[in-house]
Simulated scan of single mutants.
Amino acid sequence: MLKLHDIQAAARARREEEGEKGFTLIELLVVVIIIGILAAIAIPIFLGQQQQARMSAVESALTNAKTEVVAALVGSPNGTLDAALVGPILTSYSVDGVQLTAPTVSGTAFCLQGTHTAVTGETRSVTDTGGVQTTACAP
């Protein structure tokens, strides 16, 4: 009884004798399946890296905006902050999908909050007394 391997080997030998070159359908299918498996593994990892990079951009913008808000506070004539002073600073850092807001601005206390338009459900915040947090500003 002939086995599939023997049939394939005979077909390959016949093609070599006749000068034909190429791949069999089974060989091509195996390659396509392997590429599909590799893509199924790589694509979710790539998408996760994109999300992390976007949230890192939010964190960087928050850190830079906090530095600028503190500088504005120090340079303020009455030593306090208001929304009119903080608003333009946040607008200057709200680019490329990063959106910064200031839900809390009162006297010398503030909380800046940031999100990214391409990432849903994740918010970062920074206060006048701390670094970047993975939560929203407290009311």
Score class of each variant (00 low, 15 high):
57 A>P: 03
57 A>N: 07
57 A>Q: 13
58 V>R: 00
59 E>W: 04
61 A>L: 09
62 L>V: 06
62 L>G: 01
62 L>I: 10
63 T>N: 12
63 T>H: 09
65 A>D: 04
67 T>A: 15
68 E>K: 14
69 V>T: 11
71 A>P: 00
71 A>Y: 05
73 L>M: 14
74 V>N: 11
75 G>F: 04
76 S>H: 13
76 S>L: 07
76 S>T: 09
77 P>S: 14
77 P>N: 15
77 P>H: 10
78 N>S: 15
79 G>S: 14
80 T>R: 13
81 L>Y: 05
81 L>D: 09
82 D>V: 06
83 A>P: 02
84 A>K: 12
84 A>S: 15
86 V>T: 12
86 V>W: 02
87 G>M: 07
88 P>A: 08
88 P>H: 07
89 I>G: 04
90 L>S: 01
92 S>P: 01
92 S>A: 14
93 Y>C: 04
94 S>D: 10
95 V>E: 04
96 D>E: 11
96 D>P: 01
97 G>T: 03
98 V>Y: 01
100 L>T: 00
101 T>Q: 07
101 T>M: 00
102 A>K: 09
102 A>V: 09
102 A>H: 08
104 T>G: 09
104 T>H: 12
104 T>W: 06
105 V>Y: 07
105 V>L: 12
105 V>G: 01
107 G>Q: 03
107 G>S: 05
109 A>W: 00
109 A>C: 03
109 A>P: 02
110 F>T: 01
114 G>C: 12
114 G>N: 11
115 T>Y: 12
116 H>T: 04
116 H>D: 15
116 H>I: 00
116 H>Q: 09
